[in-house]
Every structure is written in structure tokens, then in C-alpha cells.
Amino acid sequence: MTEKKVGFEFRERLNKIVGGNHHNYCYQCGSCVAICPAARFSDDFNPRDILLKTLLGKPEELISADSIIWKCTNCYSCYERCPQDVRPVEVIIALKNICAEDGVLPPNVDKFSDTIAKSGRSVVMTSTVNRRRAELGLPELKDPPLNELEILLE
């Protein structure tokens, strides 16, 4: 028989991330699954199952760049529905933060975040943007103070 052990170390690590500690409240009722669009449109996404693996402290399948957690639509329906205030989507995002700490973010997430950190915008500015805006009679877009962002993101 294999030994059944809860990985409390992982759970304690998750507790330290903003919103991660709410995973402790989950009693596995499945309300989140009933309302989840990602569960509806895929065969393998299941927020209750993600929470179960989290409760067992077994992150191996969850913490990776191709983990199922990246299929979450971030729609907040589970947050709305959960009777235990688990805020499942926030637990999933906390798991993603652990992916970042462990250096296993999907490359596009890392790249997108870098764009925001370096330019202050999520959409890349090109030389045509202000020209198009001028044609519509809109004011010129100025860069946000990047030095401030740099200090804050140190």
C-alpha cells in the first residue's frame, strides 16, 4: 500500500500568497464545477479537482507551464458561487504565482507581463498609434513614468 500523506509544506507555501490561504475553506461541494465555463467546454478542466490536489498538497501536476490551471477562463463565476468563500479563481492565480516563483510560467505570460513592466502598457505602442489617434481628433498618448514602475517592480 502506498503511504497517504498530505503535503502541508506546499499548503503553507500557498497560504503565504495573496488569496492562497482561502483554499483551506474548500469542502469539495463542486458548486464551482457546475458554473465553470472551462469545465463546460473541456473534458479535463475541473476546479474542484484542482482544489482537491491543492488540499492534498500535491502540486506536481499543477505547477508547470502546461498545467491545466492555465485553461481557467478567469471569469470569476466560481468566486461568485462558492459557499465557502474559497475564491477558487484566486487560489488558481496563487498557484500561477507559484509557477512564476519556480520559473515555470508559460512563455507568453512572462512576455506579456514583461511588456507591461517595461512599457507600462499591455498593448505595444507603434509609431502609427498616435497618428491614427490624431486622425480621430484624440490627444497624443504619453508614456507612463517608467522610472516609477521600475522602482516599484524591483
Binding site: I17, G19, A100, V109, F112
Partner: peptide, 20 residues
């Protein structure tokens, strides 16, 4: 600046996301 975005930037670091 960017709000910052609640999907990807938040997925990387919630505290940085909150700070911005």
C-alpha cells in the same frame, strides 16, 4: 499606466499587480 491586467500580470505576481 496599465491597470495592470488581471489575467497575466496578476498570474506572475499578485503583490506587484496590487502595487501598480
Amino acid at each position: 499606466s496599465c491597470c495592470p491586467d488581471p489575467i497575466y500580470f496578476k498570474a506572475r505576481d499578485k503583490v506587484q499587480w496590487l502595487t501598480i
